[in-house]
Computed example of a mutant assay.
Amino acid sequence: MKILLTGGNGMVGKNILDFNQQDHHILAPNRKELNLEDFLAVCTYIKTHQPDYVIHAAGLVGGIQDNIAHPVNFLVKNLDIGRNIIMAAKANRIKRFINLSSSCMYPRDAVNPLQEHLILKGELEPSNEGYALAKIVTTRLCEYITKEDDFFEYKTIIPCNLYGKYDKFSPEHSHMVPAVIRKLHDAKVNNLKSISIWGDGEARREFMYVQDLADFIFYAISNFETMPQNLNVGLGEDYTINEYYKSIAASINFRGEFEHDLSKPVGMKQKLIDNTKLKAFGWQPKTSLKEGIQLTYDYYKKTVIND
């Protein structure tokens, strides 16, 4: 198949390209080749190439600090590129579209595990509200298009938090797992006796190794007709922040102490997706937390540090 992949230079996109075991013809234009903020350019590109599928994995992403500091960018840029790629695909009668969204869409006070029907059923987490609003709009837009005209199959994948190969490790822009890998590695190198954890460390999070998501993408393509309109993709189990720190410390062999900074924001107390529909769809992740962290640390040592 010919597949248009947005975000081919991001963590998810690069892993999709690496995992293309069926040798689909994947178009993954960079920003110079295709500016997703330019609707006419997106329309022209799709009209020219006529892909069988569009996989929308592009987006401005970042950790809690970045989201708090730049809510305008996280809302506007993600909203613009999402609307443009979806509407351009519709205008060119592209039948199948896979929209990658985020579990950030779920209400902050929703009962865990988070079920797909809970979208827009409560107030969002303020620390990443802009990003979440953009993802909600693109998810609903896919629903509306599918309801208006049954020719179109525009469906949304809702991954849990991700980490792994091609991740960002900078303190300003990374999510928790890569940020902690770098933090503990630096602490070990500098012989620090203790490091600080934001909050009490009891907030619970679900992180899936990103190559498992890539595996799911190709599974979804092969079974697209039976895939639900909106589908959580994750482990179905979570761990505390303290447990992540301990697991990463074990991989890195950091033997220092942990201190808790209760003045720092921690976000939602828990964010665990419900994987009932995912199991019924016939897929499950393959990488354990221990294995995934070790693979990510190996990547960090070989690629990031050496650079």
Score class of each variant (00 low, 15 high):
G256E: 00
L17K: 03
T6Q: 00
A28Y: 04
T287Y: 11
A88E: 07
Y163V: 09
L141N: 07
N253Q: 12
E206N: 06
F74R: 04
C160Q: 13
I252G: 02
D274S: 15
T296R: 07
K165S: 05
D167V: 10
D80Q: 15
L40D: 15
F218P: 08
T276D: 11
A280S: 14
I119L: 02
V54T: 11
L120E: 13
P51F: 02
S127E: 10
L75D: 01
L118S: 15
L17E: 01
G62C: 07
K264N: 01
N99K: 10
N306W: 03
V76C: 06
E116Y: 10
G199W: 01
A250R: 14
F97A: 07
A28L: 03
L100V: 15
K14E: 06
K290E: 15
M268Q: 12
A132C: 07
K301E: 09
V233D: 08
G267Q: 06
Y239C: 10
L192S: 00
Y239K: 15
W283N: 05
G164P: 13
L4T: 03
E225M: 11
M1V: 08
P178M: 05
S170I: 01
D215N: 14
H25F: 12
L262V: 05
P171R: 10
L60R: 14
N78M: 01
Y106R: 04
S103N: 13
K193W: 00
Y297A: 06
L295Y: 08
S174H: 03
L141I: 06
S196H: 00
D200G: 04
H260L: 03
R93T: 13
D52W: 01
K271N: 14
P113I: 05
I94Q: 05
D212L: 11
C160M: 11
